[in-house]
Design a protein around this nucleic acid. Sequence first.
DNA 1: AAGGTACGCAACCGCGCTGGC
DNA 2: CGCCAGCGCGGTTGCGTACCT
Length: 308
Amino acid sequence: MGRAPCCDKTSVKRGPWSPEEDELLRSYVQNHGTGGNWIALPHKAGLNRCGKSCRLRWLNYLRPDIKHGGYTEQEDRIICSLYNSIGSRWSIIASKLPGRTDNDVKNYWNTKLKKKAIAMNQQQQDYYHHQRGSGGRGRRGAPQTQCASMHPSPASASSAVTTASPGDAACSFGPMFSSPTPLQAQAVLARYDGAATAPLPPLQQQHQASSLAQFSSAPPPQPAGASIINSWAGGLAIDDMFLPELLGVGDFPPGDLFGGGFAPLLQDRASSLQELAACYFPNAQAAEVWAAADHVKPPAAGLCHSLT
DNA sequence: AAGGTACGCAACCGCGCTGGC
DNA sequence: CGCCAGCGCGGTTGCGTACCT
């Protein structure tokens, strides 16, 4: 037996909204608010629509502060960085972009940004192979490609797999990465947020120290031919993985990072790192609580407030 | 100019979570 | 404590339009 539908789909209108319906919904919400009950709202507003449909229409289209299109390079970078770090949690990513909705960000990623990232990855791989082929020393540690940075965490692995097209082979989003463990995330947070945060309990300090040591250690030797992709477990810290993209700096070849046109927006590396860490947890204590709860994903509430 | 194809986006679907009872 | 209605989210679908042949 399946889940009961939220409304009688045979008796409510579906499909595109008419301007009249938009106006009805807009005026009702502006005058009365949602009343905390979207299911009852369409009846009160005189709309022959499902409550969920009304909610979606309002949140994604009618809300007064909504922006459509015209994504800036800064927004691109925020999306890419957050996608890399937390996966396809569009509502969280969208919450960092004023005026953007999760649906909008999701569509933008799926239709434009992902291709951009894939193209850049290919460019970087070509560059890397060229460097190796020409006997260059290569870059510090294992080469970090845009592709690597574009791999979502396993939190989104399933969706990433389903949305990847066959043509994505050059950057096949797959479950290649293991997420940072809660303690690792905490360690990363503490690494950049340390001075301003309260000391951890002794046991947590011990765990954090070992986690940090593991997390921050140099990557193990990469087997030939398998060196492109690094993993959390391989020793890449958050900043190593995608901070250069966010900052638009680092030892990346010219021309990468979406054409290299991203001027550094965050000049101060330390504060940038803190902002990124804050995308995971509001503070070290929150990270600790989360770690103690052994959650798989960072908590949805309170994320990334520093970027808003 | 017409038909086919690709793309972008709005909307829908269904599941997990949460809070009230 | 369990149930259930409602909410919120991510994934998917389908339609309109732009572009190509």
